[in-house]
Amino acid sequence: DTHPIKTNGNKVISQLLLTEPAPLCATPDNSTNDDNLKALLTLCDLLNRELLVMIGWAKHIPGFSALSLVDQMALLQSGWMETLVLSVVSQSLGYGEELVFAGNLRLDQAQCRASGLSDLYTALRQLTTKYQQMNLSQEEVVTLKAMALANSDAENLENAEAVQRFQDGLHEALQEYEISQQPVELHRAGKLLMTLPLLRQTANRAVDTFCRLHLEGRVPMHKLFLEMLDAKI
């Protein structure tokens, strides 16, 4: 891990910074000469690998592994797209109008439109702009990612109290972090939590987009990605 770690005294956030996966590189798909299809194929391959990494990452979120296997599955099945969306959005911060899926896979509005990703572009840009305006820190990004998973409103939890404790631990960490910042921005933690509805909405749009791509049958999707999409519909 080559990420610089800022110590801020908060154990949970330090752990989250440490376990934040290094960004993946896209593997350009050379099976087609159609640039738009190539972008979609490359993107689907990248997102499948992101999912694999995310499942490994989740195990290292403080409190996650203490949950039952059934509840771990339930949280991931409902929250995975929100976590993926936050990864893309955090990489896109500071990149103007492009969506940065990976350092070597950046798509602008025209490219997204040509690839059939207009809706996804609009939704992701709205969230990116919001976080850009808030000047989100890396600590806040990693905490929001973990919170999105913890707060994914999974149904049929085995132990809702344990999931509540998991959420409380992350919430406490965020509050402690914000209080430790100078100057203290009043209501900062609340402002961050108030972005979660837009994150949920954006993730739902993303799920719709990939379900549509799958139904159109132009883009073969990996087994894990399909399995996770299936859990969302």
Binding site: I55, G56, M73, L76, H222, L224, E227, A231
Partner: peptide, 20 residues
């Protein structure tokens, strides 16, 4: 669970996931 067997297996594995 049967329907979501890859996720199930990945969560059970303590080692890094290998199956795509």
């Amino acid at each position: 669970k049967e329907k979501h067997k890859i996720l199930h297996r990945l969560l059970q594995n303590s080692t890094s996931p290998v199956e795509l």
